[in-house]
Design a protein around this nucleic acid. Structure first.
Lengths: 98, 98, 98, 98
DNA sequence: ACCGTGGTTAGCTTTC
DNA sequence: GAAAGCTAACCACGGT
């Protein structure tokens, strides 16, 4: 935390939190840390998602198909074309080559 | 959930969970729903992040600057980790196992 | 080159280059071939890189180490650039235009 | 070149090129620089490719379609499915919605 | 409203 | 064949 603290860049390290160069240091720092905390959580979530996919894969599912299904459900409606692709994937997965 | 349930596609809708076309329907459905739940959380998090940025902006900060600082700080962390890994590699190369 | 010429797909094969279905055939073809040529060069370059690694390996170096060093050096460059950009941003924020 | 020279890390800076810790410094440095040079060229090429796409776009072409054509030509054969997608894209481009 | 940039995801290659 | 790193494609945001 101390060595490469970029956020402190235009800031004095005296006791108080006051402005330097027109930038309210502490306020800024607080925003930065809030974002960083949220991004950490987001990263954790992304890892969780990956794990679920890994689990599904290890049980024999085709991740590509699952992803497509999820995307499809999100779109939900329009894009019938995607459904066609899914159908093709299913057929390929079953070994039913078109 | 009922209208465009693509996941059910190659599946019979009888009572049980059994295989259809080599795909274990219920198992699949469970994976899909877990991912969807996690992605919802992720979306919420992304909204939170946006809010923080918005708040910062409304108080006069430049979002671009904040983003760059955060990226820089992330790079610091990554760089340090890479350096540690490199050191490990060197040690291993010399035969100095940790 | 002649057998599966997909690019010609929506095109008439008459003498001239004119539009078919709203797509200017010759123009399109030219772009495609330029990209393909560049990608060939890129592929060659990637092979060269591989060769260098192979050579290094054959002389006893640990490729993993070399890769990591290169990545680290690249990060250094990127970080410096980012820092410069941040400085510019700060200056702009203060109204100190370079 | 002088400040963060990671490659020099476990190396003495005396006059000669000799081994330190079992690693032949100069030799290593040479490999690293060769790779870096090649990667620079590769990056330049990637930029050129982007430019071509940009040019095509500025003249009204749909980059997505061009990419798909190029991919298709590279695959050349197998993957009739891709061709179907291309057909759909064409139809959409022309405004002929399926 | 468009463009450019940056961040996310997906596919591929390569390594263990 | 599983895991990771790399590359490429995609998408969304912010700025102009």
């Amino acid at each position: 935390m101390s060595d490469t603290n970029v956020a402190d860049f235009p800031q004095n390290n005296e006791q108080a939190t006051t402005d330097v160069g027109g930038v309210a240091g502490d306020r800024l720092k607080s925003f930065i840390e809030r974002v960083e905390r949220l991004e950490e959580e987001k990263t954790a979530l992304m890892e969780d998602i990956k794990e679920v996919y890994g689990e599904a894969k290890s049980v024999g599912f085709d991740i590509k198909i699952i992803r497509k299904i999820i995307r499809l459900r999100k779109m939900d409606g329009e894009k019938r074309r995607e459904e066609d692709e899914l159908l093709e994937l299913y057929k390929a997965a079953i070994g039913m080559h078109s």
